[in-house]
Design a protein around this nucleic acid. Structure first.
Lengths: 253, 253
DNA sequence: CGACGCATTGAACTGGTTCAAAACTCGTGG
DNA sequence: CCACGAGTTTTGAACCAGTTCAATGCGTCG
């Protein structure tokens, strides 16, 4: 399978895994390399396909090569709640480390390449390269802190603050910290943004319009340019600290 | 320090840690025992005191002997968001495993006994008893699934569903599955319940009144009896599966 | 007892939802 | 190349669950 899907998202830096897997071991393998050697071949998936569903007995973690994936659950009432979006260079499905089954579903948002990492082999690797386990611990713990942040967003922030934060977060993860252009090609619909932010899709649409009118963004369907990072950040209530956090949290469960 | 604080919460079963720490090692120590040997002596705290604040460089996990603790963060706007309540037998502060600092604050809700487990010693123990690390992994991963649940609550459920689910969850954790009485002595204020559920304290108060009027509960200040578990469960949208989940998730980060 | 913190209750308000319909995008095939 | 059509997105208008503000009531701990 080829890898030239013409998506802005695919252009994100791969192997940011390095930040979470310390490479203080100067032997044959760094922990990151050791872990990635377990990964199966990249496999292609199309929008709507799934890597796993909540409750599946599938002992694999997954690594995004290119494209994007949503993690979500279905409430008792049948509504969808998105727990996070996974972008290139990120690992997901971490919650399966807690037991035999996945606690959420993973659906593909666009043409996407993914590699599987078998959990039993990861566990076996702990013996040989103890630092790998450290790295996994770190990913799990960071994911918990990401979710704490998201809980604050869902229960305390206003719609416009949620959306501004979402756009800035996506931009930071896709483009890296020192990128100047701030153009995003969204792989998710307004409905999916709403599912993630706890808003109706109409609210997302109206808000994007308002941001455009106020000169914060320039939106053309799913192509969004962030024109005023400063004011978006002020709206989102971001401190320098929280911006730094985003870049250090390149991983998802 | 004595341990006879007259709180219903203190009567909860200790050492439910067993469920998360597999004891397939029949040597001198079970993983759970090995872990608990690292714990310092029980120390007493009063309402309002803290075990740690977000950002503290404190490399300890904590185990609740008796009493209760809230984990919370403060939003950019200065509002409090409670991430969870920790009850006897539960371990918290797990997010410090991801780095040098805690990602949330831990405040004591009533007279409480807590034991500290130093993270470096836990790591050292991994070498001797590999199953301990497995157990910690499991706790982290389960905590992620708990937070997924809470995100669904915060963004999709109505106020009455949130409160019903909260009361049932507390009851299950405090009394064990086969307890008949369903009487709770809350250690948190209406305000704190609201902070956890994403509601105003007035809404919590009004709803408790409505539950009483409808015969679901019998409330007298912080003493609440759940009179109709069936209907509360229906309101909360709980399936058998989700009830089973609660008991298997005895731990918090 | 007296007082302060907590809880209850009422009334007005509002941010975001819901429902409904029109307009747009983009892939597909004629 | 353009027209078609399904799925998205936009926009408008009414509505409502829960909040906010403001008193009043209760309990419990000096």
């Amino acid at each position: 399978m080829n890898t030239d899907f013409s998506s802005a998202i695919s252009a994100a830096p791969a192997f940011s895994l390095a930040r979470a897997m310390p490479s203080n071991e100067h032997s044959t393998h760094s922990p990151r390399e050791a872990l990635m050697e377990l990964a199966g071949p990249p496999r292609g998936y199309a929008r709507g396909q799934h890597l796993f569903h909540a409750g599946d007995r599938d002992a694999n973690l997954y690594f995004v090569e290119s494209g994007s994936v949503k993690l979500y659950g279905i409430t008792a009432g049948g509504a969808e709640q998105i727990f996070g979006f996974c972008l290139p260079g990120e690992l997901f499905g971490l919650d399966v480390l807690g037991g035999p089954v996945h606690g959420c579903s993973a659906g593909v948002l666009e043409q996407t390449m993914v590699r599987a990492l078998p959990v039993p082999e990861i566990r076996a690797l702990y013996q040989r390269v103890p630092a790998v386990q450290q790295g996994i611990h770190r990913l799990l713990a960071r994911r918990i802190n990401e979710l704490y942040d998201q809980m604050m967003v869902l229960s305390k922030k206003h719609a416009d603050e949620r959306l501004a934060g979402f756009l800035l977060g996506l931009d930071a993860r896709l483009s890296g910290p020192q990128c100047k252009v701030h153009k995003l090609q969204l792989s998710m619909s307004r409905y999916e943004i709403g599912c993630y932010l706890g808003l109706a899709l109409e609210t997302v649409s109206r808000l994007l319009r308002r941001f455009d009118d106020e000169g914060l963004t320039c939106t053309r369907a799913r192509r969004i340019q962030l024109c005023d990072i400063e004011r978006l950040g002020a709206l989102a209530g971001q401190t320098m600290a929280s911006t730094a956090m985003i870049t250090s949290l390149k991983f998802s469960a």
